[in-house]
Write a protein that binds this DNA or RNA. Sequence first.
RNA 1: GUGGCUGUAGUGUAAUGGCAGCACGAUAGACUGUGGCUCUGUUAGAGAGGGUUCAAAUCCCUUCAGCCACCCCA
Length: 425
Amino acid sequence: MKYKAVRGMQDILPQDVGIWHWLERKARSDLESYGFKEIRTPLLEDTSVFVRSIGETTDIVKKEMYTFKDKKERSLTLRPEGTAPIVRSYIEHSLDKAQYGSKLYYIGPMFRSERPQKGRTRQFHQIGIEVFGSKSPYADVEVIMQLRNMLNSFELEDFTINLNSLGCNEVCKPKFTDKLQKYLEGKESRLCEDCKRRVKINVLRVLDCKKDSCIQVVRNAPSTLDGLCDPCKDHFDRVKEGLSKLKLINIKETKNLVRGLDYYTGTVFEVTHPDLGAQDAIGAGGRYDNLVKDMGGPDTPAIGYALGMERIILALRNKTTSTDTKSEGVVYIATLGDMGKIEGLKLADEIRKALPSVVLLTSTMESSLKSQLRAADRQGAKLVLILGEDEIEKGEVLLKDMIKKDQVPVKRKDIVEELKKRLKC
RNA sequence: GUGGCUGUAGUGUAAUGGCAGCACGAUAGACUGUGGCUCUGUUAGAGAGGGUUCAAAUCCCUUCAGCCACCCCA
């Protein structure tokens, strides 16, 4: 075969697209009921948009971005995540002063050049939200509540929302990094190779390591929560209190939860699901109170999350059986002869205009009536309209009911009414 | 980026170096213009490239892709 989709990028085929539509529809309706407005940003951004926000030393920026130069030597990057472009747009269009600027959502493809595996492709799709302007813990509570409710509306079961706080950039994060590095000093020999590297690059990740030896070392390590400054601790306590008063189940405090993007501050959370294999996070998010300012905008606190659509679909596959959306009524027009073909197209057009919810199939091939009926059956037609020389002469159409197995001639002008009656629409 | 495993019609699968087969699907037909069942015909395949051999789906190499894991992340 000559051409193939590029590595890690998948076609969503007609037989599979149903669940995507379903998921997007559910998400939109839930998000809009909370007052979120969709924002669509370009797939390409100036490379620095991502470098500045995600962090120069993160793996995403260092080795996973699709970056290239355009004809004018500008460095462009296919977006690896949704938050940075939205913050760029938020600042560029002064959305802090706009009517609909504070609660935004997006649905669309992201690109990261990683080695594909279960739940991970190079083009993947996210549903995400961003809430700008509120520093209040109640904003965190509402976001997590909305997330939980939306996942429920997807009929997703068995998920867990893990919750933690990293603390602020000003006091907590540097203090804690320092403390953890001191704790690990002298214990390096017991850490795995990756963790030895992490101590210097991103010490928080050591807390996250899955290796037994590292888990042992880290068991008595200080947690991010111990080191929170008073305002950060108070904020996090109020988030937890709010969540428990709302009786949100499935939420677990996970003190070693750490996020990979530099811009996170304070509350962070991650949704995990047991059926996903190694990539068990179906979504994650948190607060990023410094990002808007750091990117040159007004000092604006913010919180958001992103869900991986492929991963949600994976988790759904194991539970629900059918989510495909079948159309209400399928009507097939079987035609004979050249006259029949033309009349068939004309008739189909009239019916579509009168009954837009009906799926109307016609045969444009010169096949026998038998073949056409077989095709009608295979495609799930309830009714077949047969149109040949005889019917055209008499000004009528043969209406065949594929379930009751009977057929009656119907006057051409009465067809629409008759279909309405039979399909109850 | 690293490692392990795997690549045979559209799909699912056989054949242990000796004629690439089966099932499903698709498609056409079984006395004039009537579907589902049945029967019959047709359709289409070794990821790509190289090597070993009289002979390669089968052994070897390269490459590409998929899967799973690491790394990392949604």
